[in-house]
Design a protein around this nucleic acid. Structure first.
Lengths: 196, 196
DNA sequence: GTAGTCATGTAAGAGGTTACATGATTAG
DNA sequence: CTAATCATGTAACCTCTTACATGACTAC
C-alpha cells in the first residue's frame, strides 16, 4: 500500500500499540526501501501526480520474522505510575483528577480494545482478512489467536486499572472529608518548562 | 545530594518507573540548575577533588507541584504487545520463549515491587524516611499511600501478565502438539538492522 | 600498588514529536 | 469554485542510549 493508506489504517491496527505520525512514517518507508526491506512501485495519480505503492521484499519478510522471534527488551518506563508516587505534591483535588482521568482513559480504551478483539475473533477486520487470504488455512487460527490475545491482555489490564483508580478515589475522598481545611500544596496554574 | 548519590539511589526508587543512566542525569542536573530549579553547593572532595551537592530551590519545588498536578499524557506505546500481535511470524518455539520470558520478567519484577511496597508501608525505605522527617505528621499517610499504591498497581498487573502468558503457553503447546511437523516460519539467527 | 568506589563529564547517533510546507484530485 | 481527500515530504528540536573518557580517594 501507499504511505497514505498505511497512515489511515494505523490507528485501528498497529497504532494501538505503536502510535506514529506521518512525519515518522514517510521517512521510515524510504529508509526501509533503501535498506531493501521494502520495494516501491511508482504509480501515476491522475494526470500529473505520482504515488509509491510499497510491498515487502523477501529480505523484509525475513526481517519481520527475525524481529518477531527476537526477545523483548522490557523497559518498564511508566510516567503515569511515576506521577502517582508523587501525588502527595499535588492537592487532593488534583489527585482526584488524576484518578478520574485514569478511569476515563482506560474506560475509553477498553471499549476500543474490546471492539478490536471482536473484529479479530470474528475475522471481520479488513487487514486480518487480507492476511488470512495469503496464508494457508492451517495457520489461520494462530494468526487470529496471537492478535486477539494481545487485545484481551489490554482489556484485562484496563479492568484492573479502573479498579485500582477507584481505590485511589476512595482514598482521596477520605482525605478531603478528613481535612475540610485546604492542604498545604495548592494547585498552580502557571506552566513552566517540563523536565525529564 | 550529589549526582552520584542520586544515581546510586535511582534503581531502588524513581528508577522503578523511570530508569535513567548517568549520561542522562549529570547533564539534566546542570540544566535544572541553569533553569533555577536546583542549586548546587560546591564541596571539596579530599585534597583536590570537587563535588556538587544539589538541593531544590523554591522554583524547583513549585515546578514539582505543577508537574504532579498536571494531567497525564497517555501514550499506550507497548512494544511487547505489538510483538504479540505478530507472533504468527515466529516459530511456535520462539513464541514459547516469548511467553516464558514474559513470565520470568514479571515474576522478577513482582518480587521487587512487593519488597518495595513493604518497605514503604512499614516506613523503612531510607528516602521515604528522609521525606517524612521534613513534612508534618498529618501528611505522612498520604505520602506513604500514594507511593505504595503505585507499586501495588504494578504487583496486580504482574499477576495478570503472568496468568495471561500462561494462557499463551497453553496455546503454543497445543500448536506444537498438533503439528509435529515444523511450521513454515523458521527461526532465523542472523541479526539485521532494527526498524521502528 | 591495585582494585573498588566516588565523582563527573562528552560525543555520536537513533528515534520521536511538532510544526511547517506543498500540491493534485474528486465530489458537490 | 470550493472543500475534502489523496499524497508526500522537510526542519527544528528534544530525549534517550551507548560508548568513550578522566581522575581522585580508600581499603587492602
Amino acid at each position: 500500500m501507499t504511505g497514505y493508506d498505511l497512515i489511515s489504517y494505523f490507528d485501528t491496527s498497529a497504532g494501538f500499540f505503536w502510535p506514529a505520525g506521518q512525519a515518522q512514517i514517510y521517512p521510515e518507508l524510504r529508509r526501509m526501501e533503501k535498506d531493501g526491506l521494502l520495494e516501491a512501485r511508482v504509480a501515476p495519480r491522475g494526470q500529473h501526480g505520482e504515488k509509491r505503492i510499497y510491498s515487502m521484499t523477501p529480505a523484509g519478510e525475513s526481517e519481520l520474522r527475525r524481529w518477531a522471534s527476537e526477545q523483548n527488551a522490557y523497559l518498564d518506563r511508566d510516567a503515569v505510575r511515576l506521577k502517582c508516587t508523587h501525588l502527595d505534591n499535588a492537592s487532593p483535588e488534583a489527585a482526584r483528577e488524576y484518578f478520574e482521568a485514569h478511569i476515563a482513559h482506560y474506560a475509553l480504551r477498553m471499549k476500543q480494545w474490546e471492539e478490536r478483539a471482536e473484529n479479530l475473533r470474528s475475522r471481520r477486520a479488513p487487514l486480518l482478512r487480507a492476511r488470512l487470504k495469503v496464508r494457508p488455512a492451517r495457520e489461520h487460527e494462530a494468526i487470529v489467536e496471537f492478535k486477539a490475545m494481545a487485545f484481551e491482555a489490554q482489556i484485562a489490564r484496563a479492568k484492573l486499572e479502573i479498579k485500582w483508580a477507584q481505590r485511589g478515589l476512595a482514598f482521596v475522598d477520605r482525605l478531603l472529608r478528613e481535612n475540610g481545611t485546604p492542604k498545604p500544596a495548592r494547585r498552580p496554574k502557571a506552566k513552566a518548562k517540563a523536565h525529564a
